[in-house]
Design a protein around this nucleic acid. Structure first.
Length: 281
DNA sequence: ATTCCCTCCTGCGCGC
DNA sequence: TGCGCGCAGGAGGGAA
């Protein structure tokens, strides 16, 4: 489920419950996700306070600290939801289900990580909050699409040397983070740009349109998810994700909401893309 | 360097 | 109803 908006909605939902709280215990059940969950977390985290909950791309960064100087612990829990992961609060003592791989046990409740497909990530990076930027998974990430450096000029030069179709390029996290398969299609639809168009053949002017489209698409999704944050994190993690009517995604064969034409589904770099041939060029 | 293909997993919907 | 197949919101790694 998680692209940038879902991760941000998750972050906003869990942050108020986590900030300043003490981690009482850690339960690790999964043999391994994408990587093995570090067993050392069982000793490192208990007694730590959660000092911040951040997001970088699709990664959640949970900063933890216990004491200071020698014998203290300071570091960041790196969490990625992968394709099918979710985080939710459950009552203490609630028995885990099949795909509940990780518990952060707090004084009054448990933050529980579930991930059927196990493409998710839970790792630890020691040091002050700023140090996590050097982690191999974080250091390679591109610009934040909702930050000020995601501009028409920047995008135009970034796309200049990419001959591939714009859609898979837009999904390349080394360039821009957070745009997954749904929002790539939705953003291109909003911008009126064909997913098939070579990235290098998008004018500076249209790069500006695309920047705005990405921003608006992601922001609208966050706003829609944000309206049901409580449901989102406290129930099954499914609510709040599809509050927004998709313009083209998963609408193959249906009528385009803008021009009435027929939405088409194609395959690009192994992923489904959806677009309206009438609106997107 | 860029791009494509494969892979890691489980679950679900579809056609037969 | 059961079964096999293809597909699913991510992304790293290897090959060309």
């Amino acid at each position: 489920m998680p692209e940038l908006p879902e991760v941000e909605v998750c972050r906003m939902g869990i942050a108020p419950e986590l900030l300043g709280r003490e981690i009482r215990a850690v339960v690790i059940r999964a043999p391994r996700l994408r990587h093995e969950i570090p067993p050392a977390l069982r000793e490192l985290l208990p007694g730590c306070l959660i000092v911040d909950v951040r997001r970088r791309g699709k990664y959640l960064l949970i900063d933890c600290r216990r004491g200071n100087g020698k014998g203290g612990v300071e570091g960041t829990l790196i969490v990625h939801l992968g394709m099918s992961g979710n985080l939710r609060f459950v009552p203490s003592e609630l028995p885990p289900e099949k795909h509940d791989h990780f518990d952060l046990v707090l004084p009054d409740q448990i933050l529980r990580f579930a991930d059927p497909r196990r493409f998710g990530v839970i790792l630890w990076h020691p040091g002050p909050p700023a140090a996590v930027a050097a982690h191999p998974l974080i250091a390679v990430l591109g610009v934040e699409p909702l930050a000020g450096d995601f501009t028409a000029a920047w995008l135009h030069q970034a796309l200049a040397r990419r001959q591939a179709p714009v859609k898979p390029v837009l999904m390349d996290g080394h360039l821009v983070v957070g745009i997954g398969n749904i929002y790539a299609s939705e953003s291109l639809f909003r911008a009126g740009i064909s997913p098939l168009r070579a990235a290098s053949r998008i004018s500076r002017l249209r790069c500006g349109v695309l920047v705005d489209a990405v921003r608006e698409t992601l922001s609208a999704a966050i706003a829609a998810g944000g309206s049901s944050i409580r449901d989102y994190v406290h129930s099954d993690g499914g609510a709040g994700c599809f509050q927004i009517q998709a313009g083209v995604y998963d609408r193959a064969g249906q009528n385009c909401l803008r021009c009435g034409g027929t939405v088409r589904q194609i395959r690009q770099a192994g992923r489904s893309s959806y677009y309206c041939p009438g609106c997107q060029h």
